[in-house]
Design a protein around this nucleic acid. Structure first.
Lengths: 209, 209
DNA sequence: TAGATTGTTAATCGATTAACAATC
DNA sequence: TAGATTGTTAATCGATTAACAATC
């Protein structure tokens, strides 16, 4: 039974399913049951079937799921096939490291440009992506499709730049600034990467039990 | 009422409380009620009081919480005051970027060394930290305290290196390899940073609703 | 003292798990 | 056909919220 409202917990499991199924496919495995997929991932077969059933009926009774088809299906649900357009705002060390290392295209994202306000990097090219003057971002966004902005600017500039980009119509932010960004517009989606929170969680777990 | 078993959901909120309280303290605010803290963070006062009560009684009826004390208390719970010892395994772009940018000391971690197997980086120093030969890591771990290993090695080497480090007694891993690491030892704590999962979650949310 | 706000118990809500009829 | 495994409904479990006596 397809649902209209998918819970956050389910959504956050989708990339894991996608990753696991891609690996199974790479290993040459063509079919899998919820039971064995669950064993590999450390979750119950029940949960897997519940999760998938939010989006449709992808399996066959008595057989299981076809790995390739299910993987593609989940990819479509995640939007991997949509070739979203993305720009990087802040071409410091972190911005550059992402440009050089992160497989944006595998996630369905085309990196169209990077922006920075430092003359030291403006005009340079990182991994085939031109670094442009931050002052020209307004024009650029009006003339180009931008689905997601990767925020790798300094903490203190983060909120101001975000407000400006939202006003220009940007609706997706991948936030590396370690700042909790304020935003009242429900159409704006912000996904935070909080390195410190992650490390502190680990710190807690090695300090206790 | 102090609890023995703290849920994962609570633990993952602790760094957020810590961050928020640090900011309040920096702003010069000395006291806060669960109600106003909740407003700032977008969670209910009830949840805040429940969360804190897992660890002790930090507030005063009719008054609220002293920001400085509560912040320090949560810091202690997270282990920020313990000066944990950490090494970086894999001094490629990502490892270097973390060394240069991440405030390990603010999280209570001392970075004692980095390791890599490439002669191009062995012997160099990144942000004051020496990059050593991966072949010498066994000896090093035996002679030095290592609470956490930051894993920034290539995907295909990740599992093998992890197994080796676990055998050497390492119990905490901050995993940037984008691999699901297998581990059967319940004392070993692994905290994953899955960039791709995060971006795909964002992709889903901008593609739907 | 009166007002405010805690810590905690009880009620609600939502997510996970179990069970099973449907069917490949 | 018999066995396997799905999709879905019902039961359970856990986490969040509400309520309130205790008390600063």
């Amino acid at each position: 039974m397809r649902k209209e409202n998918i819970s956050d917990a389910v959504i956050r499991r989708l990339p894991r399913y996608y990753r696991q199924l891609s690996e199974l496919y790479a290993r040459g495995i063509t079919r899998i049951s919820s039971l064995s997929l669950g064993r590999e991932m450390g979750i119950t077969a029940s949960q897997i079937r519940q999760d998938f059933s939010c989006f449709g009926e992808f399996g066959q009774q008595g057989y299981g799921y076809r790995v390739k088809e299910l993987c593609e299906e989940i990819g479509r649900i995640l939007g991997v096939d949509r070739s979203h357009h993305l720009i990087i705002v802040g071409a410091g060390r972190l911005g550059k490291a992402l440009l050089q290392n992160f497989p944006f295209s595998q996630c369905g994202f085309a990196v169209d440009a990077a922006f920075d306000s430092s003359p030291a990097v403006i005009g340079s090219t990182v991994n085939g992506v031109a670094v442009r003057d931050m002052d020209t971002i307004d024009v650029w966004i009006r003339e180009n499709r931008v689905d997601v902005v990767v925020l790798t600017v300094p903490r203190n500039a983060a909120q101001e730049i975000t407000d400006r980009l939202i006003a220009l119509g940007v609706r997706g932010f991948w936030n590396f600034t370690n700042m909790e960004l304020n935003n009242s517009n429900p159409d704006v989606k912000i996904e935070d990467i909080h390195f410190a929170d992650s490390l502190l969680t680990l710190s807690y777990r090695i300090s206790h039990d």
